[in-house]
Design a binder for these strands. Structure first.
Lengths: 173, 173
DNA sequence: GCTTAATGATACGACGCAGTACTATTAAGA
DNA sequence: TCTTAATAGTACTGCGTCGTATCATTAAGC
């Protein structure tokens, strides 16, 4: 419960503007318990971010077909949770470089590798650079607009269409 | 001088963790003057962000050839200033939605329109969606890694190669 | 039933912040 | 020279913060 509250506050207010007193109050825990579990504010932040990241990452199935995997990446990464996580890790990347590193490794890097594996089932000559481009296109400007709070999450239908467009643009049909 | 100092502090420490006292001290101005010019902290933040944005935006020349324009976009948007601005606007987009809107309009939107115009000089049938994809690819994962502080700015040579790769991937040669 | 560990509740200290108020100083223009 | 506007220099007021300390309360395991 502490972590859930911390996730909600850190993602909406940012690291500096979130107070531990409020986390304790909203999670109906005492300040003592928060400090007992997480040591300090940075520890609580790291734990909250990792928790959210793990929840999101495990919802992508690398065994699916290419089209399914692509749609799943679009849907998952455009969700409120993933967008908030992405925004927060970028915002605090200078203060928490290690968090940024692990985020990229088990987020974008991992997704790109899954895409590469799926692509190679159809064409073994596909390169890693190509898979990275596909990943970039699957996010695209709609994801940047999401990061900036300028639009909402796409529907399943829109996500599937977006995935098709990205695959098509790179020559896959 | 006040604005230069504010830009430097907001971009490295974020909005909440930057104090007006420190801006005044580092810019060798008095707190009275800062408040006289910018009203409050939010006003100073907005003015600082707009100033930086304008300086970056005017360094892209829409009249250049497609290859030149593409390289220029890659170079400009991977600079320390542009990456810091991008990161900051994302970080504070929930607190400053109007800033996020104007950033996107005169940043990514404007660049995409320039790319569209350049693309259409060669092929009038090119769509806006296509130009948007090109913009996304010109940033690519290397730009995400920049936002996360995971890599440095590319050289001119690398930027030009990156631009070529993006154009090639979308079928332009 | 008793010991032990975990949690709650709360107060505190030291500090920093945003924004205001007030006076002193500078400089410029008529 | 005199007036006026801009700036400097501070001091002050609430307020909130992190992290620690203290004591009460609960619960669990043996």
């Amino acid at each position: 419960m502490i972590l859930d509250t911390a996730v909600a506050l850190f993602l909406t207010a940012g690291f500096a503007a979130t107070s531990i007193d409020e986390v304790a109050r909203r999670s109906e825990a005492s300040k003592s318990t928060v400090y007992a579990y997480f040591g300090d504010k940075a520890g609580l932040f790291s734990a909250a971010v990792e928790r959210l990241h793990d929840a999101i990452a495990e919802s992508i199935d690398g065994e699916a077909t290419l089209a399914e995997l692509a749609t799943s990446v679009v849907m998952t990464l455009h969700s409120d949770e993933a967008v908030g996580l992405h925004r927060t890790v970028i915002a605090e990347s200078l203060r928490f470089p290690e968090l940024a590193r692990s985020f990229y490794a088990s987020g974008p890097s991992r997704s790109t590798q899954m895409l590469l594996a799926a692509l190679r089932r159809a064409d073994p000559a596909i390169t890693a650079v190509h898979a990275e481009m596909l990943y970039t296109l699957l996010l695209g400007e709609s994801h940047r607009r999401r990061l900036l709070g300028l639009s909402g999450a796409p529907s399943v239908r829109e996500a599937a269409q977006h995935a098709r467009d990205a695959l098509h643009a790179l020559g896959h049909r």
